[in-house]
Design a protein around this nucleic acid. Structure first.
Length: 298
DNA sequence: GCACAGGTAGATT
DNA sequence: AATCTACCTGTG
């Protein structure tokens, strides 16, 4: 097998002219910091897949990005999809300025360390699947599971890569196949969710039309979806930047850096909404990134 | 061998 | 409404 068949043929690097301004560290945190699970750093660039799109991205001068595509790709279509994936219509700079960093030194420190950090706008179904895989798993394990499920049950996406399976594909795969991908007890949740979604083909379309609280309620009706996973889907899949997922990291931050130890989760939710405001989920991502990087106590 | 990891659901208090 | 626990699997 020629090398080009193993890795595919890729176009030369081009500047993403309409793309965001973002530092290398913030790009890494955005693509490979727990929002998405199908990006890999290959030494000098990221390579990732979402939906049916396959692309390489790397930091370029002036905190801009360059991209490379499989030579077979429709460049116009992928670039358009990439803009949507990066939520280009959203003014994250303005959203950052509206966060309460002036009165919150912890948040201010987090923001300072990740200039240009973004909240992705991922396909909702894929977001739901990935976060159903995520419970008490670390990012590398979640990525390994997603890769295994894509290879076994997804569709070929060129050069030996595979898309994540659609929910009908997951339903067809069955729980045993999912278990074989090291999903453990999550396999049951995922397959039962797939059965529910099979009976409601317009579930995700309807979610888009609902208010955030109503959409969360719908999501939490699915097997295996509690408050945290629902908030991740709202934030990373539906662009609801007010959704504030509280995982073990964020809980520790709130306890240690904000002095809220002992507060029940419902109270923490209310604190987050009141203190961080409509961009609470974005604040959460700054805090999460900074805590994992050891920049703030957690 | 054993605790712990981007949780959830069901039982118990 | 706030704890307590089982649930799979990989990693240290």
């Amino acid at each position: 097998m020629r090398k080009s068949e193993a890795t595919g043929d890729w176009t030369s690097w081009l500047p993403w002219v309409d793309g965001p301004t973002i530092t290398a560290a913030s790009l890494a945190e955005t693509l490979d910091g727990g929002q998405a699970f199908r990006w890999n750093w290959l030494g000098s660039h990221f390579e990732g897949i979402w939906s049916r799109y396959h692309i390489r991205l790397k930091p370029a001068s002036g905190d801009r990005l360059s991209y490379s595509l499989p030579t077979s790709a429709d460049a116009t279509g992928v670039l358009s999809a990439l803009g949507a994936y990066f939520a280009l219509p959203t003014d994250f700079e303005m959203m950052t300025d509206h966060l309460p960093w002036r009165s919150d030194p912890v948040l201010a420190a987090a923001i300072k360390n990740f200039p240009g950090l973004r909240i992705l706008r991922q396909p909702v179904g894929e977001t739901l699947f990935c976060f159903l895989c995520s419970s008490t798993k670390q990012v590398p394990q979640i990525k390994a599971i997603c890769e295994a499920v894509a290879t076994r049950s997804g569709s070929a996406c060129g050069n030996g890569t595979y898309t994540l399976p659609t929910w009908p594909q997951i339903e067809a795969a069955g729980e045993t196949t999912l278990r074989a991908c090291k999903l453990g007890y999550r396999a049951g949740y995922i397959h039962r969710t797939a059965q529910v979604l099979a009976a409601e083909p317009d579930f995700f379309t309807r979610l888009e039309t609902l208010e955030t609280d109503a959409a969360r309620e719908q999501l939490m009706g699915l097997p295996g979806v509690g408050r945290k996973i629902a908030d991740c889907v709202l934030l990373f899949g539906l662009g609801r930047h007010e959704a504030f997922p509280i995982d073990t990291w964020v809980q520790r931050i709130l306890e240690r850096a904000y002095g809220l130890a002992g507060w029940p989760s419902t109270q923490l939710q209310q604190f987050a909404r009141a203190h961080f405001g409509p961009g609470a989920g974005y604040a959460q991502q700054y805090l999460f990134a900074a805590a994992r990087a050891g920049k703030i106590p957690a």
